[in-house]
Amino acid sequence: MPILEVKNLKKYFATQKAVDDISLSIEQGQIFGLLGPNGAGKTTLIRMITGIFYPDSGSIIFDGQPFNPANDIAKIGYMPEERGLYKKMKIGEQTLYLAQLKGISKKEATGKIKEWFAKFEMESWWNKKVEDLSKGMQQKLQFVTTVLHNPKLIILDEPFSGLDPVNSNLIKDEIFNLAQQGATIIFSTHRMEQVEEICDHIILVNRGQKILDGTVHQVKQDFKEYLYRISLTGTGNDITDNEVFVIKDRSDNSLIIQKQEGKSNNEILQYLLSNGASIESFNEILPSLNDIFIRQVEGTPLARRFQEVH
């Protein structure tokens, strides 16, 4: 059963169709990538899922029930891209306050905070103020406040911005951990290398509409151009375009070829072998998500123009 199901969601603002008929479904335990250029409607979509905005039309099913913000926001942890904390408030008190607002008791929250602070080596921070922390440290604290109440659904908007590689890995490991324990994670970013590394399933949103939906593997397969890299022991100078493949690029000891339609990999190898090539390696080149992203979004204005909404 999917933990979150969104059907035909729409949200129009005065000058923009921010979210224009988006449907998606997220299974429990998934790490779900929500991708899209700036202004694509990601934040608006997330704000509807977190109960901050009411959709104009469409439905949200959360955990098998129609989404009811008043009760369900306690089961959601949201770290917005525009995030922050009360600068003058002590860190322990602040974490406790945010946890209590999520509906957990003071006693339970205190125990959980101590656990998390120990895990992230933050015990000495309790009586410090947020303004005393570096940006990276604030980010770690923000992550703790987001996941402290054991949410079923965790929504992270650009969680690694401003983090050094060590702390990035720390958070990444925790994201995997939480997913393993059964939490579902929606991960919104435009850093594609992280998405490839972390996410199981992605959707790509542009101009308020969903333009891609699938597992990372599936999407790559869908967008592959049947390109292969062949390394040879000798030069491949005598190999030319033929009915099995065309040569896209050639360097000293390697070729990049594109398979002709309807041919199989075996036929490529057979052709090469029968032409006396000595093959060192043979790899398929799959497009990176970055390439797919750019290809899909290219040609559409990056910052959305204001449009008339009827």
């Binding site: 977190t50 901050i52 926001i73 770290m79 525009e82 995030r83 922050g84 009360y86 607002l101 406040t145």
Partner: peptide, 16 residues
């Protein structure tokens, strides 16, 4: 204004 400039407003409205 403090809540808005500290960017805590959105964190808060996801809870209350």
């Amino acid at each position: 204004m403090e809540e808005k400039t500290n960017r805590i407003a959105e964190v808060m409205v996801s809870s209350v």
